[in-house]
């Protein structure tokens, strides 16, 4: 039973790791939900190693050095390895959206707008290069865009983190894996006329300005024009 289960676990993980690397109908691998695309080699290495573990398990291996303290111990520990697999498969196409925003947003306090803080956002590049600049480029060096009319794309958050008067248009920057993702975004005056949906993607065009609200430094887009767009193939921004 234990040996059979060990074979099942190793081959299951080998298949899952390979499946994460394969592009779906949009051409985007499920790996992008969890990890930086540049880490494909890591997942490929994991797939090869788990496959090798499966092969050695098939080679008449009646002995294992794995240590257990009860008859059920080994089985429970092997079954435990299937649990994260079930989550990864079930949520391979999920997005953080606005639900993950509140626990990740870090706002910077300042005394006055003139003292623009050194915003520690990784220099990023978007996979969809249709819009220039993307939110990452805009917020990495916002001063170079002050006063300019720019167009960008992001997900909309209706309950602005600092004031009800604003919408928050944001994207997540992933450095290594989704767990370290940080939101970056701009604030937009809440329009009176257009109904904006939360969690939906919008193209926003407006003039970039620094501002402060209740002592928090923000980047605003004034005179904003918004229109809903399809979500990008890959919603993440990555360090360049």
């Amino acid at each position: 039973m234990k040996q059979l289960l060990a074979k099942v676990v190793t081959i299951l993980w080998a298949f899952i790791l390979v499946a994460l690397l394969l592009p779906d109908s949009n051409g985007s691998p499920a790996l992008h939900t969890f990890l930086l695309p540049g880490l494909w080699w890591l997942v490929a290495a994991g797939a090869v190693i788990t496959f090798l573990f499966f092969i050695v398990s098939l080679k008449g291996d009646q002995h294992s050095h794995s240590h257990v303290k009860s008859r059920m111990g080994a089985i429970i520990k092997l079954l435990l390895l299937i649990v994260p697999a079930s989550f990864i498969v079930t949520f391979s196409k999920a997005e953080y959206g606005t639900d993950g925003l509140a626990s990740r947003l870090v706002m910077k306090r300042i005394q006055k707008v003139a003292e623009t803080p050194n915003v520690a956002i990784p220099r990023v590049t978007a996979k969809d290069s249709l819009y220039h600049p993307d939110l990452g480029e805009l917020l990495y060096a916002p001063e170079s865009f002050y006063g300019q009319r720019v167009k960008t794309i992001g997900m909309m958050y209706l309950d602005s983190p600092i004031s009800d008067a604003y919408l928050y248009c944001f994207r997540y920057v992933m450095v290594c894996c989704a767990a370290d993702a940080l939101p970056v975004g701009v604030f937009i005056d809440k329009p009176d006329t257009i109904a904006v949906e939360s969690d939906a993607w919008y193209e926003v065009e407006g003039i970039v300005r620094p501002d402060s609200v209740d002592g928090y430094f923000i980047i605003k887009m004034d005179e904003a024009i918004m229109r809903p767009v399809e979500s990008p193939k890959n919603p993440w921004l990555y360090p360049r």
């Binding site: 999920a94 993950g100 290594c176 894996c177």
Partner: peptide, 21 residues
């Protein structure tokens, strides 16, 4: 659930592959 699943999946996946190596 999806926030937790992506977070867990990503931490586990990365750590798993490094641990396999």
């Amino acid at each position: 659930r999806h926030v937790f699943a992506i977070t867990w999946g990503s931490i586990f996946l990365e750590a798993l592959c490094f641990m396999l190596i």
